[in-house]
Design a protein around this nucleic acid. Structure first.
Length: 450
RNA sequence: GUAUGCGUAGCUCAGUUGGUUAGAGUAGUGGAUUGUGGUUCCAUUGGUCGUGGGUUCGAGUCCCAUCGCGUACCCCA
């Protein structure tokens, strides 16, 4: 009989947890360094909070939780069977799909307890009812940082800096792509079809994936005319340096207020980021769209340069996210590190440092009841100095106890038998060199205490 | 939702045009070694070949169905 974990979810072994925690603490350290405070929100949210925030596809991917008790109470059978209507009646809660929307809800609910601009970070799992594949899970961790209640573009710059610091610490070579939703809006405006912005962005987002011709095809399918495509053609063929692209767009959007705004925002971010002299590769990517409906300004995406993998960071500015919860005109900008994808990148490139195990430093061999009593005393002394210490619980063959220490990569084994107790010493075995020396507890404490 | 590949021991896999009792490595257990792991040697546990049906004298192998897993598309961290 097989009791598998749910598809797209995973168990984590101790060694994997050490590696995961290495990623989490690295990100957390950088967030704290920039003055972000941690919050948490519940795994479950009301569906009224979640639904309609991520587009039609997003709604489909939200895990809905069945009402408890007799969930059929409100259902009149023999009525028309529409699964969406039925869902509304039998489910009113769901697992969170990301951390941004619950955060917006959090802001609105807690506005009186928050000082703005509010810099928060949040590291928690999210769930998506998606088909798993490489780098895609149904349960995965997002590591979000947002600055809310500030329009300043310095915030965008700070987020770029954070991205650079995190990946420098992790040793990953990355490319940071930036775009601005206002520029995308200006494109839709250019052809006089502002309502087509989503269709256009979805299509041109695929430019590097399916190629120019297929994008044109898709644009036509999505209701654009050949005339429209001619107008936006210069955008699809945008090439050269960041400065070249900006210059070209400035000309194109000469009569577009929103286009001009988008470009000036972009320029300001780029100029300030350049002052920081970051080690990441920065690119202005007009095709970068992001599916999320709520971005209004900057859009960020990070890709690992050495691994084929979806984006490992996503983010952007949203001017009115809290508006849907009844608190308008609060602008925020944020990013989200995908910890699980970063894990897969580091693993594939063998970039995890060797010394990240959180394992025991020293273990006392168990020679029996009498000897164990002395071990208890010594272990307490070591632990009081912060040295990770354990005592093997069973009086079994020494061979087995040594194997335990070896398997758990414990660097020191303390042997405390009848003879040693008489002499008041401990035999300390270095498991890496194999050397053994007789030492007092004070000498061992000094040796292992850093 | 669409397309496609794979299911043999706890894990990684071999298994010939269908042919007797399905193998190896590794992990586990016991021993060589009752105070010494990682290296070595010996022994040993462990399988309804994912499940159900069919073809056949005979199926791990061929066919059908079903379940599970992976990959790609859509979308996304």
């Amino acid at each position: 009989m097989n009791y598998n974990v749910v598809k797209g979810t995973r168990d984590f072994l101790p060694e994997q947890m050490n590696k995961r925690n290495y990623i989490f603490t690295t990100i957390e350290k950088v967030y704290q360094l920039h003055g972000f405070s941690q919050i948490e929100t519940p795994a479950l949210e009301n569906l009224s909070t979640l639904m309609g925030k991520y587009g039609e596809e997003g709604d489909r991917l939200i895990y809905k939780v069945l009402n408890s008790g007799n969930f059929l109470d409100k259902v009149e059978l023999n009525q028309e069977l529409d699964y969406k209507k039925l869902t509304n009646k039998i489910s009113e809660k769901g697992l969170r799909y990301d951390l941004t929307v619950p955060f917006a809800r959090f802001i609105v609910n807690n506005r009186n307890n928050i000082t703005f601009p509010f810099k928060r970070y949040q590291i928690q799992p999210v769930w998506r009812a998606d088909r798993p594949q490489k780098g895609r899970y149904r349960e995965f961790y997002q590591c979000d940082a947002d600055i809310i209640g500030s329009h300043s573009l310095l915030n965008e710059v700070e987020l770029c800096e954070i991205i650079d610091e995190v990946f420098s610490l992790l040793g990953l070579k990355i490319e940071l792509k930036i775009n601005n939703r206002k520029i995308l809006a200006a494109i839709a405006e250019l052809i006089g079809k502002p309502d087509k912005i989503v269709d256009i962005t979805i299509a041109i987002d695929k430019l590097d994936k399916i190629g120019y011709d297929k994008v044109i095809e898709e644009l036509l399918e999505r209701g654009l005319t050949n005339e429209d495509i001619e107008k936006i053609n210069p955008i699809l063929n945008l090439k050269g340096s960041i400065e070249d692209k900006i210059l070209a767009l400035k000309r194109l959007f000469i009569n577009s207020e929103i286009g001009q705004k988008g470009i000036s925002e972009l320029e300001e971010v780029f100029n300030n980021v350049q002052i920081l002299n970051l080690s990441l590769d920065l690119d202005f990517d007009i095709t970068l769209a992001r599916g999320l409906n709520y971005y209004t300004g900057a859009i960020f995406e990070v890709k690992c340069k050495d691994v084929t993998m979806g984006s490992i960071v996503g983010g952007g500015r949203y001017d009115n996210l809290t508006g849907i919860f009844g608190m308008p005109d609060v602008s925020g900008v944020g990013i989200s590190f995908g910890a699980d994808r970063i894990y897969d990148c580091l693993e594939e490139l063998n970039l995890f440092p060797d010394q990240i195990s959180a394992s025991t430093t020293i273990i006392f061999v168990n020679f029996g009841a009498k000897e164990s009593k002395q071990c208890l005393k010594y272990a307490k002394i070591l632990r009081s100095k912060g040295i990770k210490t354990e005592i093997y619980p069973e009086e079994v063959k020494l061979q087995k106890q040594m194997k335990y220490a070896n398997d758990k990569k414990i660097p020191f084994v303390a042997l405390l038998g009848e003879k040693e107790i008489e002499e008041g010493v401990i035999v300390l075995k270095n498991m890496i060199s194999g050397e053994q020396t007789s030492l007092t507890i004070e000498q061992i404490t000094d040796l292992l205490y850093k």
